[in-house]
Every structure is written in structure tokens, then in C-alpha cells.
Design a protein around this nucleic acid. Structure first.
Lengths: 248, 248
DNA sequence: CGTCTACTTGAACACGATCAAAACGAGTGG
DNA sequence: CCACTCGTTTTGATCGTGTTCAAGTAGACG
């Protein structure tokens, strides 16, 4: 178990890639300075646990790059992913000190961490941080509720299409591929991780991906490289309103 | 469609039953006074819609008494309940003006409402409100994620047991029935509403309740009156850690 | 090559859904 | 008091989606 490299990334908040989306988004320069004083970076390798459920948590932080998952596990081993952490997402809960879920790095991961105690003090003295955190938490609550519909009522095919839409949408907003209509991305999760997110088995995930490929909804190169020729078609397969719920 | 009685409950915040649990929990007397200035009560009858998905929302508020549900519906009619609103729970989102879900009164319901604009101003000027709302939102996020495990990985029997545990736990904390070991309560939801919460059909709900009764996990008088002779047994059926995750 | 791990595919099964009918309880009116 | 309706719930029979168990393929790395 190779420890994370001690001397990690060093970076100015000013040119941080998640500057305008993370908890610090609303901070003024002086507030940013205060955060800078208590922050440090940590790197994790793909597959590494960031936090173990039940462990004491003495930091909170933001995902800078890479992807992590939040998962819950029952005694008999059944696991359910309850959150997908993308760059700018926040980890940890001010005011609680043991972690309720496992946090696992799915890809190589860089996190911007704050020691919990000083961060909690800042929360009180800096409304811009608390307000941003409230906003982000409300967004996550909406996402969690949307996912409850997926888990409770959608078919396996719709579930897969829903998950692919999430990746496709995220990628479209980064790569500006809207123009061409074709969206291309790499799946950041294994079939098993997808199954854990969707409440399915990995075999069913595999079968449904094959089916969507066979039906021309997606194209596959290798196991991970996906092309979506027609986003509207994918959304239809996902069972979402085609006239896109523009919550953004 | 009988309108809600215009002249509704009038009440002092000081002797409000949800005073220490709602958004206002942390407020000092002067802050409470400011809330009192912008609040008004509304009553809804069982079955009435409080809010329709997509509608403009010009108020936020707290459930004072009764039970309401948050539900999401797909075009083809499949519905999933995404939240259960009990007394002291908060409805509405500062900073957003169209409702993302239907809110339906399941029993007769009293809400303490605040006009949205003034409330948003108070949020900025009164950290105690914003902080309490953040705390409550984080709790709801935890609850939503717990429910994702129920929806994604539990069997029908475990789902029913999980739902019954929620009601039982809530009731135990009110009635102090811990002593006797027997917990008694009335189901606040129809079989159909339970099905919508659990991602099942109402027939399956009915069958599993019958099965739990047959196996002595619960006792039933009529359709709604439930007795739990052994809470540990119920929790075991729900698939939860028997040594109770004491998050309280 | 051999050995991983990740993924795919097949066959049989089981759980929960679906369709259908009947029981129950509360309310209404003769 | 019984007959009637209406909404909720129970129970039964059959069906289908997704699971389970099992074998096999593909690609990476030694």
C-alpha cells in the first residue's frame, strides 16, 4: 500500500481549475487567503480508499481532479453507490466527525483538503463559504432525489441510459461538442461500479450496454470509449423529458 | 375543491410545537420576531396538493403538523416518492422559484409559511437561520442516501421492514415506548403511497405486510394499526446493523 | 506464453410485476 | 336494518425482467 506522495501538488487558489465551482466559489481575495492558509493537497491512486466508513474525519475538502465514489455497504456485502464525486464536489460534513460512507478514488485523484476545525471556524466567520456550501448541498440533495427515481422506478435499460446521459452531459459541457451532435467520452467506471450505482448486477449492466450498442443508441470502441451519435435518442431511452429539464 | 380556510391557526412562535427542531431552532428572540413578521399559517386537507411540480413557488415553510410527501412522476405515470415530510421538516428552496416535485398532504396538514423574498433576505442577515438550514439539508441528504440503499439493494421484505422501522423509531421517540419494548403506531400512508416510496407495487406491499404479520414480526389491528413486539427483530428484517447506527 | 483482471455471453431460476377477482370497511339512502 | 356504492386492501394465477451460476473472451502485463 504505497502512501500518497508526501510533497503533493502546490498551487495558488487564483489559478485553481475549480476556483469558480467549489466551496470557495464566492470568496473574495482576502477570504481566499484565509482558506489558502489551512489548505493542503492530497493525492490518491486509482482504487485507493480516501475515507473508510466509520473512521474519524479530521478534514473536509474538494475534489480537484479525478473521480471518487461514495458507497454504502451492508453486512452481507451488498453495496450501493450513493454519490459520484466529480471535480469541484465537496467531501465531508462540518459538524460531524465520523464518516458515514466509504469514499473511494475511482481514478487517480487530487483533493484540496482543509483541516476540519479551522474550516468550521471559517464557516462561521465567512458567510460566503456557508452560503456556497448550502447551495451545493441543496444541489446534491436534488441529484440524490433524482437518483431515487432511477433506482426505484426505471428499468435496467433506462438505468444504463440515465447513467450514460450523466457522463455525456458532463462531457458535452466541457468539450463543447454540442455543435456536432456527437458526444464522445470514456467511461470512468468499471461495469461493477456502474452496477453498484444503478442497483443492478454487473452482468445486467454488460448486457444492457451491449443491447444499446446493438440498437445504435451508442457506439463502443474497446470497453470504455463511448460515442453518443444522438443525445436526444439517449435521453429518450433514459425515460427523461426530451425537452431537457434545464435546471442548470 | 374547498379552499383552505382563510383565517387559519394563529400562534406565537414561543409555544410552537416545532420551535426547537425547525429552521428557526437556533433563533434568538429578536430573530424570531423578524420571522414572526413574515410568517402565516396554511392548512391543507388530506389528499390536497400543497405544490405542483413546475409551479412557481413564492413561499417556503415548515410542516407544523401532519404528513406530506415529495413525489416525482414520469410521463408514463410511474411515480417515486423522494421524501417524506414530517413535522419540523422544511419545504422549498431559497434561490429557486419553480418547484421540482409535487408536494402532497397525506394527512390533514398545517404549514408555517414565509414569503420567499423576505425569507431570503433574512437568510443573509441572520446566520442562525442559514446555519440551521444547512444542517437540516445535510441531514436530508443523509436520509436520501440511506434511502438509495433501500431502493437499490434491498428485497421487498427488507424494504417494508425498513419503512416500518422509520415509523416505529419516530413513534418510539415520541411515546417513550422504549420501556415496554412494544411499539405501537398507525401507518400514515396507504399501501399505494408505501409502494411509491419503496419502488414496489401496492400488491407486493400488501403481500409482504401479510408475510411479516404471519411471521410474527408485526401485529395488525385493522389495516393501519401496527404493533411491533420486538424492535430488534424488525431491524434485523430490515437488514440494518442490529447494534443500531446511533446517528442521533 | 501464462496469468491476471475486466468484460461478455448463455441457461435456468426466482422475485416481484401484472392481470384479475374477491373481501373488507365506511358512508349513503331506501 | 339491509342494500348499495366506492375506495382500499387482500389474495390468487401467470408472466417477465433481472439475478444467479457458469463458462468463455479480450486485453494488459509479466
Amino acid at each position: 500500500m504505497p502512501a500518497d506522495r508526501g510533497l503533493a501538488v502546490s498551487q495558488e487558489c487564483a489559478d485553481c481549475p475549480i476556483r469558480h465551482r467549489a466551496v470557495c466559489a464566492r470568496c473574495e481575495n482576502d477570504e481566499l487567503q484565509q482558506l489558502e492558509d489551512i489548505k493542503y493537497y492530497r493525492k490518491f491512486e486509482a482504487g485507493q480508499n480516501v475515507i473508510w466508513s466509520g473512521d474519524r474525519m479530521d478534514f473536509v475538502g474538494s475534489v480537484v481532479s479525478g473521480i471518487a465514489t461514495l458507497t454504502q455497504t451492508m453486512e452481507d456485502g451488498r453495496t450501493q453507490m450513493v454519490g459520484l464525486l466529480l471535480p469541484s464536489d465537496f467531501v465531508g460534513r462540518p459538524g460531524r466527525d465520523t464518516a458515514p460512507y466509504d469514499v473511494v478514488a475511482t481514478t487517480d485523484l487530487v483533493m484540496c483538503c482543509f483541516r476540519k476545525k479551522p474550516f468550521e471556524s471559517l464557516m462561521v466567520s465567512t458567510p460566503n463559504i456557508a452560503q456556497r456550501l448550502l447551495q451545493m448541498t441543496l444541489d446534491e440533495l436534488d441529484a440524490a432525489r433524482e437518483w431515487m427515481l432511477v433506482l426505484g422506478r426505471k428499468t435496467a435499460r433506462e438505468k444504463i441510459a440515465s447513467l450514460l446521459s450523466i457522463f455525456a452531459r458532463r462531457d458535452a459541457s466541457i468539450n463543447m461538442s454540442m455543435a456536432t451532435g456527437r458526444i464522445v467520452f470514456d467511461l470512468p467506471l468499471t461495469r461493477e461500479a456502474m452496477a453498484d450505482y444503478l442497483g443492478l448486477t454487473l452482468e445486467t449492466v454488460s448486457r444492457q450496454i451491449s443491447a444499446l450498442k446493438r440498437d445504435g443508441v451508442i457506439e463502443l470502441e474497446g470497453k470504455r470509449h463511448v460515442t453518443v451519435p444522438d443525445m436526444d435518442l439517449l435521453l429518450e431511452e433514459a425515460g427523461d423529458d426530451s425537452d431537457g429539464g434545464m435546471l442548470v
